[in-house]
Amino acid sequence: MEWSDEQRSLVAAVQDFCRREAGTREQRQHLTNGGREPHSPELYRKMADLGWLGLSLPEEFDGGGAGMVELCLFLEETAKAMAPIGGFTTSIIVAATYERFGSSEQKKRILSGVARGVVEAVAMSEPEAGSDVANLSCRAEHRGDVFVINGQKTWCSNAHLAEHILLVARTSGSAGDHHGLTMFLVPANAPGLTISGIDTMGGREVNDLYFADCVLPADAVVGQVDNGWRQLMAGLNMERLILASVMLGTAQRAFDDVMEYVKNRQQFRRPIGSFQVIRHRLADLATEIECARLLIYNTAAQVDRAPEKVLPRESSMAKLKATETARRVALDAMQMMGGYGYATEFDMERLVRSSVVSTVYGGTSEIQREIIAKTYGLSDHMR
């Protein structure tokens, strides 16, 4: 890819910062409580002071006014450096929703907050509604001047760090209807909301949310009542490209680490990278990473040229390709490193954990394939 001078300067600055602040495993262990917390408030504040957290946000809300390509570059580099800023992905996805659909007051509060280092979260999945978003049943009942929320959300990333939750709840219709969903701005400390962590292989990342007569004012609605599905669809480019860029950086890091290993690890009196089976495997992985990179940045450039256009095929392809590639690279790298790839004292096992789950969140690989197929006119209802 050809980058402008400004883009190259951004990449160089991010790389230098990450080497200095989180360049060693010891530094990252310190920042993450021994690897148990994927988000470091200390490192996050420093990035906020540099203006990077608001990189792609409008200047009127303390942002940098940059485009999708620049945001993807930032995400790729921070992921490659394994910088523990897990709260950023949900925050910037949420900010994009408020930028499109929020009121003036909501935009000022959320977008400026994200630029300053406030973490935001989104609550959509439920125990019986993961890939099937239309099956949401958490209900927001309109009573006079307020909405009363009851129900459960699950797998809510970074809710325990967030100041607000962007909630998708049902305001009309029944489970199975796309119509009747509404977005709400919910303070994380709202009475009637309980946040409970879910233990995972990745540490403290996701949460259950329980709403019991949680009362929200009418101005908590984000966008239009009953229009939440259309609003969700409008943000797919951003969400999928963000997740794809993070996994591109993860794949590149796994590749770089295993390359260093195979060049130095001696077996049968020569480096294992000299064996044809290893050489060819790495050649294949390098090719797959480059394919993912070209797909991501081509799609990001399309978004910058026409921000209002939804690109379901391209964004789903980017998410599918990047996450599946990251998983393959990390698992192959673990195999090539043998026991060292499995040991917790090395970074590879963390890269494996983060890449495997990436094919599940943000729309599973199976869902991405369904979306791509439908853009070609293929579906269960063909005649």
Score class of each variant (00 low, 15 high):
240 R>V: 00
66 A>T: 00
64 G>V: 02
57 L>P: 02
157 S>G: 07
179 H>T: 04
125 S>Y: 12
213 D>P: 00
318 A>T: 06
380 D>L: 09
211 F>T: 01
213 D>F: 07
153 K>L: 05
247 M>W: 03
119 V>M: 09
13 A>V: 00
50 L>R: 11
362 G>N: 04
383 R>Q: 14
299 T>H: 08
366 E>N: 10
65 G>T: 01
126 E>P: 03
230 R>T: 09
44 Y>K: 05
185 L>A: 12
350 R>V: 06
112 S>E: 14
371 I>S: 13
310 V>Y: 02
136 L>T: 09
12 A>P: 01
267 Q>M: 15
365 S>W: 11
26 E>L: 06
153 K>P: 05
215 V>W: 10
145 D>E: 15
199 D>F: 01
202 G>L: 14
297 Y>E: 10
69 V>W: 11
278 I>E: 15
166 L>K: 00
347 D>I: 03
365 S>V: 04
365 S>F: 09
326 A>Y: 09
194 T>L: 10
314 E>Y: 04
212 A>R: 12
280 H>M: 13
299 T>I: 10
304 D>K: 05
144 G>L: 10
270 R>T: 07
294 L>Q: 15
104 S>D: 15
222 V>T: 04
95 A>L: 10
218 A>D: 14
263 K>M: 11
214 C>G: 09
63 G>H: 09
43 L>T: 05
14 V>Y: 11
42 E>V: 04
80 K>G: 12
383 R>E: 15
246 V>W: 06
218 A>G: 07
183 M>I: 00
325 T>I: 06
79 A>P: 01
37 E>C: 04
122 V>R: 07
67 G>P: 02
292 A>Y: 09
218 A>M: 14
315 S>P: 03
239 E>N: 11
187 P>R: 06
229 W>S: 11
154 T>V: 13
25 R>N: 04
4 S>N: 01
373 A>H: 05
247 M>F: 08
302 Q>T: 03
260 E>D: 15
102 G>S: 09
382 M>V: 08
175 A>I: 03
219 D>H: 05
130 G>T: 08
82 M>F: 10
